[in-house]
Nucleic acid binder design. Structure first.
Lengths: 200, 200
DNA sequence: CGCCGCGTTGAGCCACGTCAACATAGGTGG
DNA sequence: CCACCTATGTTGACGTGGCTCAACGCGGCG
């Protein structure tokens, strides 16, 4: 697992690997660890978000896709990557980390995080999905409270992969529990009580 | 709904808008139409993939996220975008479409497509989800048949948000139906009969 | 050999989908 | 202003698809 021989830091950081072959089931990199970005030449990779609650599926990468691009920005991986099939990986954009692409890199990282959020909204119990969606849509106001503009039930149902009836029931329960306080009916602003909402 | 006054095409196409305010429920752009990329300054946006079977949720964009970046590459939007809340949009990367960012743009577009694929794997009936996952993992071989390296049930269950038992039942059914032919047991190569698989 | 991880299959049950009835708001036309 | 219509949200009753739990077969490994 660990390096057998002690290598000077400069030497260890210098030689970027040029091709990696991974066997099915093997972990490619761990979340929050350092490394380079990779392009998947062959195989399939599963990305997972690691939280205190455990790991949850956060993305899929197939042939041609790039994984770990966020490391070029943050210096560490946001997700964990595991090979779902035998893989060949090649380093991606190691040297020519063009400063003109900074904005694009940020956008790429944000897109992947948002995709992971959306995936998470389709796992777990119905009530929890709707609750998480509300928290995702909430914004802090000037007075310190949070508010959300509730979308239509159709949209919430499509996002969470539930039915409108189930979403409506979950919203009613959130209101009964005091997490949501209706401000005005229909496409209205609704308050989120932080002390309740923050107990994620 | 329609333009009240007829505007010359050159005039209509010339001035890139500098800020767009969208009201909840309004469509921002249609799939396969032309336009610019946008950054969401405020609000929430729902992305949908438009297929012959209808529209299906394909992504979420919140404050700070970029939508429609693929139009810089392909000249048209891949998804449809609708405002889930009142939005403010500003054009993104219209002028300085740096050629050095070409690779990054392609990666960004691919990432969004893959995220939409992953989301689709968590909607619909269990059997169909597993079937679509198999098709996604399948690769064409030299002899014209398709093959897939089946991941573990744990992985397939995590991706589709089903249980191992349900995935196993779906895989058995695929085998009984002749779509999959087991090549060798356990982490094995399995053949996909194209004539069956292509009847998506 | 015993053990463990993985896949498979059955039985029962429950969370959610389905269907329906109704309430309310908004829009439109008179 | 009201009458009417439609879209949307709410809630109840009921059925079911998939989860839970469990047993079992199989292969790999110490």
């Amino acid at each position: 697992m660990h390096a057998v021989i002690a290598i000077p830091v400069s030497a260890a950081a210098a030689p970027p690997p040029h091709l990696r072959k991974i066997t099915m089931g093997e972990r490619i990199y761990a979340a929050a660890s350092a490394g380079v970005a990779w392009r998947v030449r062959r195989g399939a990779v599963r990305l997972d978000r690691i939280t205190s609650a455990g790991r949850s599926f956060a993305g899929l990468a197939l042939q041609g896709d790039v994984i770990g691009a966020e490391t070029l920005l943050f210096g560490q991986y946001s997700f964990e990557a595991c090979a779902i099939g035998d893989c060949e990986l090649e380093p991606w954009l190691t040297a020519e980390k063009a400063p003109s692409g900074e904005s694009l890199l940020q956008t790429l990282a944000a897109t992947e995080r948002r995709a992971a959020d959306a995936l998470a909204l389709r796992a777990g119990e119905a009530f929890e999905r709707v609750r998480q969606l509300c928290l995702l849509l909430a914004r802090a106001r000037d007075d310190g409270r949070w508010e959300i503009a509730i979308p239509g039930l159709k949209d919430m149902a499509a996002i969470t992969n539930l039915t409108e009836a189930t979403v409506s029931r979950a919203m009613s329960r959130l209101r009964r529990m005091g997490m949501l306080q209706r401000q005005d009916r229909r496409r209205a602003l609704v308050f989120v009580r932080p002390e309740v909402a923050c107990a994620i």
